[in-house]
Amino acid sequence: MRDGPLHLAVIIGSTREGRVGDRIARWIVAEAGRRDGVLVSVIDIAGFAFPPGYPAEATPQMAAFAAEVERADAFVVVTPEYNHSFPASLKQAIDFAYDEWHAKPVGFVSYGCRSEGLHAVDQLRTVFTALHMVTVRDGVGVDLLDDAGDLERLLGGDAPVQAARVLLDQLCWWGLTLREGRAARPYVS
């Protein structure tokens, strides 16, 4: 069994200029950072220079992303909803790793206008299930039309904070359980 803190990676799934995903990610990182036994890192896909197409051999940036995925025990994906789905840039990044995702949990903090990004989450659950991951049941949804001028105040409310606690409880349980399982026996895909 691997000892040490649970490594939780928060993935910022938007690369748009003017995005709010980085602000929402900072909030969930702060919430996770209040927990004992959890080491939090951020994987911002906007910081990677991915190729426009999928090359025959992985580029150094693709390999760096896959290595970040490999190091993590659990994930929070912070995703917007664009046209009832998640961003193409997020799908591209997800596809640059495969075995590195296996037998790990993922949860979602989504945002959008009125739908709270839930259409994007529904589709991401399908994608991550195909990658042999456990998607946790509960998540955090943020409606950008509620207090849009003061996102930090909105995120500091009772409902988002409680939803984050439940999400992180589930991710920590699954993260530790699956880490122990992977250490005891290799995952068979």
Rank of each mutant, 00 (worst) to 15 (best):
residue 170 Q to A: 13
residue 130 A to L: 01
residue 133 M to V: 00
residue 79 T to Y: 03
residue 107 G to S: 04
residue 117 G to S: 05
residue 58 A to D: 14
residue 163 A to D: 15
residue 168 L to E: 12
residue 103 A to I: 01
residue 108 F to W: 08
residue 168 L to T: 06
residue 104 K to S: 04
residue 172 C to D: 14
residue 90 L to D: 10
residue 87 P to C: 04
residue 134 V to G: 03
residue 150 D to A: 01
residue 102 H to C: 10
residue 134 V to D: 10
residue 98 Y to V: 08
residue 58 A to E: 14
residue 101 W to P: 04
residue 125 R to C: 08
residue 114 R to F: 13
residue 105 P to R: 11
residue 83 N to P: 11
residue 168 L to D: 08
residue 130 A to V: 00
residue 126 T to M: 10
residue 73 D to H: 08
residue 78 V to K: 10
residue 108 F to P: 05
residue 137 R to H: 15
residue 71 R to P: 05
residue 149 G to S: 08
residue 156 G to W: 06
residue 111 Y to N: 09
residue 151 L to S: 03
residue 96 F to W: 13
residue 92 Q to E: 12
residue 156 G to C: 09
residue 103 A to N: 15
residue 91 K to Q: 14
residue 146 D to P: 00
residue 91 K to H: 10
residue 96 F to M: 15
residue 131 L to P: 05
residue 112 G to D: 07
residue 99 D to C: 06
residue 133 M to L: 02
residue 96 F to A: 08
residue 142 V to I: 15
residue 104 K to V: 01
residue 79 T to Q: 02
residue 165 R to A: 15
residue 161 V to L: 11
residue 147 D to S: 10
residue 138 D to I: 02
residue 103 A to H: 13
residue 165 R to G: 14
residue 66 A to C: 08
residue 155 L to V: 02
residue 104 K to F: 03
residue 157 G to V: 01
residue 141 G to F: 05
residue 150 D to S: 00
residue 89 S to I: 03
residue 140 V to N: 06
residue 66 A to R: 07
residue 159 A to P: 03
residue 138 D to C: 01
residue 163 A to H: 14
residue 150 D to W: 00
residue 146 D to T: 09
residue 75 F to K: 10
residue 101 W to S: 03
residue 112 G to W: 03
residue 149 G to Q: 04
residue 129 T to F: 14
residue 107 G to W: 06
residue 134 V to M: 12
residue 84 H to M: 09
residue 120 A to V: 04
residue 93 A to S: 10
residue 82 Y to V: 07
residue 110 S to M: 10
residue 120 A to P: 12
residue 147 D to R: 13
residue 108 F to I: 03
residue 133 M to Y: 02
residue 79 T to S: 11
residue 140 V to P: 04
residue 102 H to P: 10
residue 127 V to H: 07
residue 124 L to G: 00
residue 131 L to S: 12
residue 142 V to F: 07
residue 118 L to Y: 03
residue 75 F to L: 09
residue 105 P to V: 07
residue 141 G to K: 07
residue 58 A to F: 09
residue 155 L to W: 01
residue 131 L to D: 13
residue 57 E to W: 04
residue 95 D to H: 06
residue 162 Q to V: 12
residue 117 G to N: 06
residue 112 G to E: 07
residue 167 L to P: 00
residue 171 L to D: 13
residue 113 C to F: 15
residue 151 L to A: 02
